[in-house]
Design a protein around this nucleic acid. Structure first.
Lengths: 340, 340
DNA sequence: GTGAAAGCGCTAACAC
DNA sequence: GTGTTAGCGCTTTCAC
């Protein structure tokens, strides 16, 4: 492996001169500089990253920690990160934090191979992140909140998303809406339920809430609860079901379809998350989406700023993005009536 | 940042002793060893990766280069890689090679931050990879072939996949099959066409080939060509269309559906790749799939073996995996006849 | 303008 | 058993 010393040797200069020359520093005479550069190029010299990292303080690399690599959800976030990082001088490197918080977290963050990190994994231990931040590594956490100097949060406003979605259902004229929550320990589920309740509390209509059912975010639980809703609806027919995530909403649609209830016409179904399948479901599922590209872009922006600017200019509160309502067929009464 | 020297200082030993002690080496007395470990733990000491990488030859990190991070195609490959790497001592780190071959490729491979690399990106310059391999870094390329010592290829057998798919169409009784190829410069398209032709050449039937049309892998081109096929079919009706990728197949289905031709019943459509949408199409698209998990697993296996075993035990030829036929509704005549 | 020297934090010989 | 020494490849004062 060709080292700087070798380049210097062949160019007849000292390693230190070669080092500055290769960065195009004007301090070294033009012809020496060009000679060094040419020789380095001819030899295929590339500086050793470890050696340079060791000497310099900065590595110009940002670690991105995901729970599991791949998956359509992450891809948009990564696109946002890449776009912001592009031409910033920083390179994003992605690791998977899944296997026992080991591997990538250790290699990238603990062993100081990166200058900063973006963490999108609810399972990465909060204390571990705080410890790392205390060591001086800026961290942006996505979709969760950690109050600690050096840790920045970027997330979507789930409460507002659910509020907005519920308002839409009310505007469309639905008057008996059931809500299916996720597991109790999910902050997302809580926030979504809160948004649902706030929208109902604001409306003049009474008795719109047709029950709040406890699901567990799985398609099966959505399916079961849909049957339960059908059994329960004695006095007033439920005309809309708002599930706290898309998987459950799909389960609900399946159950209704199985007993011949026409989705959209007889009952509306609202999901949450906009997973990929939502748009391919039949009818396509109306749902609420996080602005994932924006979240990634902003996360990258925060990290870059934390590394080049004064950190006091950065927000101490979580940066919250509004969620977007994606209206599709599952909440449209006109679906099969020749409407647009 | 707490360094080994500091740990050693507080433990009252030399850095070298601390270094060995921390690795649990029996050479140092048990109580010294435990004291060092305890102090290191108390101080939150983690060795500096750059320093260690610089000293040791190996880094225990494998770079995975993808064209664009995210996307359902990659996620299975990554799963396979992770499973194989797990407990191997190596940690996979993913970088994106897209922006002008810069960034991740430089940072990870050129600057020697990894021990080996898995490259899944047709656009990464072949010469660059060869140069890197010559420097001693083992590389596994996926879905392409590079003949060079130190570069190993893992790929799916596209020719066999297309052959198999065509045979299936023949067995199902289709007797007038049109093929839509991809762009001329695509080796995949060529291989798929070759498989199609081989299957037809083997059959006793004459005149099964109802034309080979040149598409460009886009949905639009599939759509256009479908219309052309309908115009062309003067003497014998085409009863099946085999598109060299799923996007084109979906375009074909769209075109047929638009003019009221019932897919499955009146004409069969076969795709290639099994992109995610294939299973959500209506009717669901019969297609051919790469064993992506296996490919990832095997790629990781090759890299690990290249790093710990004698390289002479590794294959010099590309490792080729068979593709899997995924039968769905778009090639089933019985779709709407009450069949299973 | 250029080179000598020191050192980033760690590991591995070799001495004691 | 433990410490001393040297050095991985690079950058960075500071002399000349």
């Amino acid at each position: 492996m060709v080292s700087l010393r070798e380049v210097a040797l062949r160019a007849g200069v000292s390693p230190s001169t070669a080092s500055i020359a290769l960065r195009g520093d004007k301090r070294v005479k033009t012809d020496t500089r060009e000679r060094v550069i040419e020789i380095a190029h001819a030899l295929g010299y590339v500086p050793n990253g470890s050696a340079r990292d060791l000497k310099r303080k900065s590595k110009q690399i940002i670690g991105v920690l995901l729970h599991d690599l791949g998956g359509p959800f992450y891809s948009e976030v990564l696109r946002g990160i890449q776009h912001r990082m592009h031409d910033s001088g920083f390179t994003p490197i992605v690791g998977c934090s899944a296997p026992g918080n080991h591997g990538a977290l250790t290699r990238l963050l603990l062993e100081q191979r990166v200058d900063g990190a973006i963490v999108l994994d609810p399972l990465v231990d909060k204390e571990a992140l705080i410890r790392i931040a205390r060591r001086g590594l800026p961290i942006v956490v996505l979709d969760r909140e950690i109050s600690e100097s050096g840790i920045y949060s970027v997330m979507a406003n789930h409460e507002q998303g659910a509020y907005h979605a519920t308002q839409y259902l009310l505007e469309e004229g639905f008057r008996s809406i059931a809500f299916i929550s996720g597991p109790d320990d999910s902050t997302h589920s809580k926030a979504r339920l809160a948004g649902f309740c706030r929208a109902l509390a604001q409306t003049r209509q009474r008795g719109v809430c047709a029950g709040i059912y406890a699901g567990n975010f799985t398609e099966d639980s959505g399916c079961e609860i849909a049957y339960q809703i059908m059994r329960d609806q004695g006095r007033h027919r439920v005309d809309a079901v708002f599930a706290a995530n898309d998987e459950m909403a799909l389960g609900v649609m399946k159950a209704f379809a199985d007993v011949g209830v026409v989705i959209g016409q007889e009952v509306a179904v609202m999901g949450f998350d906009d997973i990929l399948i939502a748009q391919y479901a039949r009818p396509a599922l109306t749902t609420v989406r996080q602005p994932m590209y924006d979240i990634g872009y902003h996360a990258a922006d925060l990290i870059c700023r934390a590394l080049v600017q004064d950190r006091s200019s950065l927000p101490t509160e979580a940066v919250v993005f509004p969620m977007q309502l994606v209206v599709r067929e599952s909440t449209k009464k006109t679906t099969f009536e020749g409407g647009i």
